[in-house]
Amino acid sequence: MTDLSNHTRSSRHLGARVSDFLRNYYIYFVLVAVVAVLSVANLDQFALFERGNFLNKRNIINILRVSAPLLMLAGAFTLLMVSGYIDLSVGSTMSLSAVIYALLAINGVPFLACFVLTVIAGMGLGAVNGFLVVRLKITPVIATLITLSLFKGIALLLVQDGVSAIKSIGELRMPGWFNDYGRDAVLLGLPMAFWVAVGVTLALIFAQNRTLLGKYAAATGGNPVAARLSGINTNRVVFGLYMLVGAAAALAGIARSSFMSLGDPLSGDGMELSAILVVLIGGTAFSGGEGRVLRSFVGALIIMALTVGMLTLVPAYYQTLVIGAALLAAAASNHLISRKEGMA
């Protein structure tokens, strides 16, 4: 087995090896480049590693804390894209989960129960997507646009009129533990939410590399007909992946809600764009069949470093422009790298 792969590798064209290398490792170079630029950009005002500099310990901890929701979403979203499907409703699922979590907490449900119930609710929302796509055969983009609108509407209706987010209801107040999960340092100065995101990502890397789920997802995305003919129940794989993404979105909603101490029905707005951006930066093919959980995780770090770090350089109103340009650039570079591969 090793011999065979060595043989094929050595006989391959140099260009193919270069593009392989680029595809596997370019993302780390991008991360390093982004961090390098951001840390030297303000050197005339702040010393390296000192307060105010990008590489200051507090700043890094802060970025990693706010990254938790996107980091949780990246892995599951990658697996779904690898199987050739897309979920535009992740932002709304996240908002609705945040509202459900806050509602449960404010009504006196203990932390662990809130957590588990919200994740189950997220899986239920994912199952709705799975049902529309797999059973009713509605195009994924449209099916999840429908649920984007639906979940967002439900989240807005759960929050009573005249209030923008759940903070207190009458005499009820948020319990004291509410923002421990998203803010309280448990290890290396980072909160539980961040470590859960790391745990979820490790589990999904394992699932992608060592279990049938990863193989089935790649097979479904690479060639759905062949996958079905070789006995894979692609419907069940896709349905399961939608539930997985729903659960990940719920975890993201819990993290965001706990971090902000709010049940905000708009807190997930635009998350679907960030998720797509992260997955594209990670080199996942939009036609399915190709993509790595770990690379998307690094992609999420890049995006969070960029969006937070940029605030020290340019006014906030540059954000939309930069994200839009990054999305197009990531899509174009993805295309160029995969075309090289195809030609070699």
Binding site: L273, I276, Y318, Q319, T320, L321, V322, I323, G324, A325, L327, L328, A331
Partner: peptide
């Protein structure tokens, strides 16, 4: 989606 954000940006 990208050009939507680019134009609004």
């Amino acid at each position: 989606l990208g050009t939507m954000m680019l134009a609004r940006g």
